Simulated assay, not measured.
Amino acid sequence: MLKSIWAVTQKGAAGMLNQALGLAEALFNGGGFGLPQSFEVEYRWPYTWAPMHPAFASLNALTPENRALFGDQPWPDVLITCGRKSALWALAVKKASGGRTTLIHIQDPKASPRYWNLLIVPEHDRARGPNVLISKGALHRVTRLKLETGAEAIRQEYAHLPHPRVAVLIGGNNRYYTLDEDWMHGFVAQLRSMCERSGCGIMATISRRSGEAETNILRGGLASLPAALWDGKGPNPYFGFLGLADAIVVTCDSVSMISEACSTGKPVLVAKLPGQSKRFDAFFDSLLKQGLIQWFDGRLMQWDSRRLDDMDHIAQDVRQRLGWI
């Protein structure tokens, strides 16, 4: 019988959901699992402030509307969570299932690893232990097949853009970095300089965290350039942009987006935002030393890069650690 598998993250955390779903899909593709289901959970007060400990784990942590999403279906055989807020609810599910549900958590939950069956953390996180797997970057859903099929689906639509083609991935504000109007004006000037110097075409996309004012500045700046912008309306061409791109420019606020860009094996240029994070700095330093990224300064730099792809081995390591092989 196929094992059931859920990917669960906190509401609105698209990057975290991509990580959990990426691992769930990799396990599914390896056989032995049913089609993954995904959910986004939302805590109610006071559980938003509860310590990360099984004693505080409760199914009542979720809002009534959020709990209703799960219906009366049985708890899954495997629950994959990502991000601290979903980690506590995973402990509640394990208690409710009588210990039957296997817990896999992605990222450091800032608690003892022994509460979960397996942790997967990037090397710039601190968690370590016998049940902890270390990844170079963030897990993701990007695969060669998705890049190929995504590129083929939009090839004619973007055939008018000149080569080389550059995918530009825009994030937004978080607690470490600020993406504001002043920064966007400067970034648009850099993109214009890149086009004038290299004759490249631009395929740009925003994220959920991109502000409306900043998106309007980007849209206006790209209007006079050989460029296309996906602004959140219509089918998302993200995989297609990555597949068609000869190089990628990505803002520095998202380990997930940078990891996805690096998984393509194409040159990745990281655009700095105001702010700083020691964890992010350690991640950047590692990629710089491996020759996987360069800082973006308005020039299109291209070099022979290689793929950074933890997904090639993490799913296999999970199967081995948990005795599924």
Rank of each mutant, 00 (worst) to 15 (best):
G240Y: 05
W230E: 12
T205A: 08
R209I: 04
G240V: 01
N216I: 12
C200G: 07
Y176V: 03
G232E: 05
A204T: 01
L244K: 07
A204V: 02
Q190S: 14
P237A: 09
P226Y: 07
F241A: 05
P235R: 13
R197Q: 15
Y177L: 11
S207L: 04
V188E: 05
A213P: 02
Y238D: 07
H185V: 11
G232L: 09
S193Y: 03
Q190G: 12
H185A: 13
I202Y: 02
W230L: 03
L244G: 04
E214N: 08
L242V: 06
G199S: 07
P237Y: 04
A189Y: 08
G199E: 05
L179F: 15
R192L: 00
L242M: 13
E196F: 03
L244D: 01
A228Y: 14
E214P: 01
E214M: 12
D231G: 14
G221Y: 14
Y176Q: 09
G232Q: 06
H185R: 15
R197T: 11
G211K: 14
P226D: 10
S193Q: 15
L225N: 09
I202E: 01
H185T: 12
Y238E: 02
V188P: 02
P237L: 03
E196K: 09
F241V: 02
E214G: 04
R209K: 11
T205C: 08
A227M: 10
N173D: 15
R209C: 09
A227K: 05
W183F: 14
D180P: 06
S210F: 00
Y238A: 08
G211I: 09
L229E: 01
S193N: 15
C200Y: 02
D182G: 12
D231I: 04
Y176F: 15
G240Q: 02
A223P: 00
R197W: 01
T215G: 14
C200K: 03
N216W: 09
N174L: 12
P237F: 05
R209E: 07
A189N: 10
G221N: 07
R208I: 07
M194Q: 05
L242R: 06
W230I: 06
G199M: 13
D182E: 15
T178D: 13
G211V: 04
V188K: 04
N173L: 08
Q190E: 15
